[in-house]
């Protein structure tokens, strides 16, 4: 216990006489303690600064969205005009509609297919399961820009080949296949489905198998076992997956940039208007999106907590 760091100046409690080395021991101990205190304080100040760094830009965006003036140079008074301008922007509203449609469709498809494949993967033969795992990880690893480009050239090639056939088979009123919201959904679902799969399987590993076996022993049909036992336990992971899929799809720029064709999404609209120059209505859009995101996070947190509590109670009961 007579460690230098603990003997911070006071008399040594072990009662041993302070030898010549004891004096330097205590001094070294004091120095170590002071160093530690300084280190601790520096760590706190530093962490505070990093938090400031994280939130400063967001604060700036919110403040300037209520600024009356056109220029971001000075604050000229409170105004909500940028919100009105953003709201009446036809292109922006169109992009918002597209983004919401794409993100909702992606979230539903990714959640259903990701969960279904996660449920069944353990029952596949080892070789098939290995293949599914490989595909899932590759879908996650391949960078977004490569997914975007590969989907673009694949679809363009496929459509070039398919469209003459369609015209030949169906005549003049044949549908002309092209890039659009549907191709964005295809590429977004690929990545997010893999994420849902991994989340649900991680949760399954922590699940109580006994409950499923008990349900089966009590002659419940597989569907009933799923609805009453498996699904409630998996719900937090499924909800988290759906939320992630929606947010990813709604926020993604690079994949949509390559695969959306004529259909604009909100990130593409923002990119174009940022490149065009100063446009304070961007701040208004950003603030609305920020508000919606924070509400969604809080809501998801509440749902997750309830789901966890109910899941825990179910596991005990």
């Amino acid at each position: 216990m007579a460690s230098p760091a603990h003997a911070s100046g006071g008399p040594r409690r072990d009662g041993l006489p302070a030898s010549e080395t004891g004096g330097t021991d205590i001094r070294a101990g004091r120095r170590a303690a002071r160093l530690e205190r300084i280190g601790e304080r520096t760590a706190w100040i530093y962490t505070g600064l990093v938090f400031g760094f994280l939130f400063l830009p967001i604060l700036i965006v919110v403040i300037y969205s209520f600024n009356a003036g056109r220029h971001v140079t000075e604050l000229t008074g409170f105004s909500t005009q940028w919100y009105t301008i953003a709201w009446s922007d036809r292109f922006l509203m169109n992009a918002l509609r597209n983004s919401l449609t794409i993100a909702t469709t992606t979230a539903v498809l990714a959640t259903v297919m990701g969960t279904a494949s996660a449920l069944a993967m353990d029952r596949l033969s080892p070789r098939l399961r290995w293949l599914m795992e490989l595909l899932t990880y590759v879908a996650i690893i391949v960078p977004g820009i490569v997914i975007g480009i590969a989907t673009l050239i694949f679809l363009v090639t496929a459509f070039d080949w398919l469209n003459p056939w369609l015209a030949y088979l169906a005549g003049v009123d044949a549908p002309h296949l092209g890039l659009g919201a549907a191709s964005v959904v295809a590429a977004h679902t690929l990545f997010t489905m893999a994420i849902v799969n991994v989340l649900v399987r991680t949760r399954m590993r922590g699940m109580d198998r006994n409950l499923v076996e008990a349900s089966e022993d009590l002659f419940a049909t597989p569907w009933r076992t799923f609805v009453q036992v498996t699904f409630p336990q998996l719900l937090p992971a499924i909800m988290a997956g759906a939320l992630l899929a929606f947010t990813f799809s709604f926020d993604d720029f690079i994949i949509a940039f390559f695969t959306s064709g004529q259909d604009q999404t909100v990130p593409i609209y923002l990119f174009a208007s940022i490149r065009r120059g100063v446009n304070p209505s961007v701040n208004a859009i950003a603030t609305v999106l920020l508000g919606v995101t924070i509400m969604a996070i809080v809501l998801a947190g509440l749902v997750y907590r309830r789901g966890q509590r109910r899941g825990g109670a179910g596991a005990q009961g």
Partner: peptide, 13 residues
């Protein structure tokens, strides 16, 4: 969890 583009835009400002 907030838009990537908007955070980057804030830094441009």
């Amino acid at each position: 969890w907030t838009s990537f583009l908007i955070r980057t835009y804030a830094w441009m400002t």
